[in-house]
Simulated assay, not measured.
Amino acid sequence: MKKIFVAVVGMLTLTFAAQAQKKSGAIQFESTIDPAATMAATGMQVSDEMRARMPKAVKTNFELLFTATNASYMPVEEIEDSNGGGGGGMGRMMMRMGGAGGAREYYYAFADQKLVEVFDLSDTTYVMQGKLAVANPVQAFNMANRNQNNAPTTNGNTTTISAVQFLPGPPTLEVVKTEETKKIIGLNCNKVIVKSIRKAKVLGEDKDVIDETAVWYTNDLGFSFSPDPNFWTEGTVLAIENKGKTTMAKSIEYRNVSAKDVTAPKKATPITADEYKVKMENMMKRFSGGGNRQGGQPRSVIIN
């Protein structure tokens, strides 16, 4: 009986140790962008000459580090093995960019659903409070807004006018839950579709232009996260797919993670979303030499 008792205790100890280990680790993500498709989705004209010069795909690696209470998400790059053992590895990049679509560092606190964004702008490192949601990005401008009126574009001796002319005003977001499931990095995932609906004139007729983004999430990990904070409904998002950009989890490793790697830097200047919006609008005015530009606006969300 004593031997059986010892064996049972040993098995329980191993089970608890395995469960404890799974509360921390690293998930590797890969983001693939089709520049031409992304530009076309915003209403910009992409000539055949421009398309021919663009890369077919631009790939960036990201890493999510998580513990039982916190997480961080940022770009990584392959590095050589500093010990000379070969095989290489992944190293985190301090690549903070403040512009629209720029790479940022994100830090999550699970207990109070807190999210902060860290980025560089005008030689200053800022920290801004954020949140997970289906929402409009905070960025005060994007390529769609810059081409809001779809002005004619000239390429050599040819001038073209887009067949799709987006009307002023923010798009409406609609979240559609589906019954689709699949496994990503061995975890059970559910699919929701986020529809962005914009009013436009298509060949002179009023139409709704709909862009769909598939969001795959799992509840197996027990915490809330998304590689894009503006595409989240619940759980841990492991993939975001649309016609211009795809971000997908590629691997997961359960291991110990240092608390300092999931803690936002303390030497950063706080900035609010409104202050950031003003800075970006002013920067855009200087860049364009003045003129009116419509910034990002809140969008209504419908969940079915």
Score class of each variant (00 low, 15 high):
Asn61Cys: 00
Thr269Asn: 10
Tyr126Cys: 01
Glu174Ala: 11
Glu180Val: 03
Phe5Ser: 15
Lys285Leu: 12
Phe225Cys: 06
Gln148Asn: 09
Val134His: 03
Tyr108Trp: 07
Ala68Met: 07
Ile185Thr: 06
Leu221Asp: 05
Ala140His: 05
Lys199Cys: 04
Ala17Glu: 04
Leu12His: 09
Lys182Leu: 03
Gln45Val: 15
Phe166Thr: 01
Thr124Trp: 12
Val127Ala: 06
Ile184Asp: 05
Thr153Cys: 00
Val301Thr: 09
Asp211Leu: 13
Ala57Cys: 00
Asn61Met: 12
Val209Gln: 03
Ile185Lys: 09
Pro229Cys: 07
Ser258Pro: 02
Gln21Asp: 14
Ile27Leu: 07
Ala163Met: 15
Gln21Cys: 12
Met94Phe: 13
Phe66Thr: 04
Thr160Lys: 07
Val301Cys: 08
Arg104Lys: 15
Ser122Val: 11
Pro55Ile: 03
Gly99Thr: 07
Ala52Leu: 11
Phe119Thr: 01
Lys182Ser: 01
Arg92Leu: 10
Thr159Arg: 05
Arg92Trp: 03
Cys189Glu: 04
Lys260Ala: 14
Thr42Arg: 08
Ala140Gly: 15
Thr154Pro: 05
Ile161Leu: 15
Glu77Asp: 15
Ser72Ala: 14
Lys22Pro: 02
Asp120Lys: 09
Lys277Pro: 00
Val46Lys: 12
Ala52Gly: 05
Phe287His: 07
Phe231Glu: 01
Glu205Asp: 07
Val237His: 07
Ala41Phe: 07
Gln297His: 02
Lys2His: 11
Met95Val: 03
Met95Ala: 13
Asn145Ser: 11
Gln45Ser: 03
Thr272Ala: 06
Pro168Gly: 09
Leu121Gly: 05
Met1Gln: 13
Lys114His: 11
Glu253Met: 14
Val215Ile: 10
Gly25Gln: 08
Leu167Ala: 13
Gly186Met: 12
Gly296Glu: 07
Val164Asp: 00
Gly85Gln: 14
Asp81Val: 08
Phe62Lys: 06
Thr32Glu: 06
Gly91Asn: 10
Ile33Val: 15
Thr213Asp: 00
Thr272Cys: 08
Asp261Ile: 01
Lys59Glu: 10
Thr69Lys: 13
Val278Thr: 13
Leu187Arg: 11
Gly101Lys: 01
Pro229Asp: 11
Ser72Asp: 02
Ala37Cys: 08
Met284Cys: 02
Ile185Tyr: 11
Gly25Val: 09
Arg96Cys: 05
Leu65Asn: 14
Ala140Phe: 04
Ile161Gln: 15
Arg53His: 04
Thr15Glu: 12
Ala214Thr: 01
Ile271Lys: 04
Ile33Thr: 12
Gln21Glu: 15
Lys23Ile: 05
Leu167Cys: 05
Glu63Gly: 04
Ala40Asp: 08
Met44Ser: 11
Gly10Ser: 11
Thr181Met: 14
Thr233Ile: 14
Val76Glu: 06
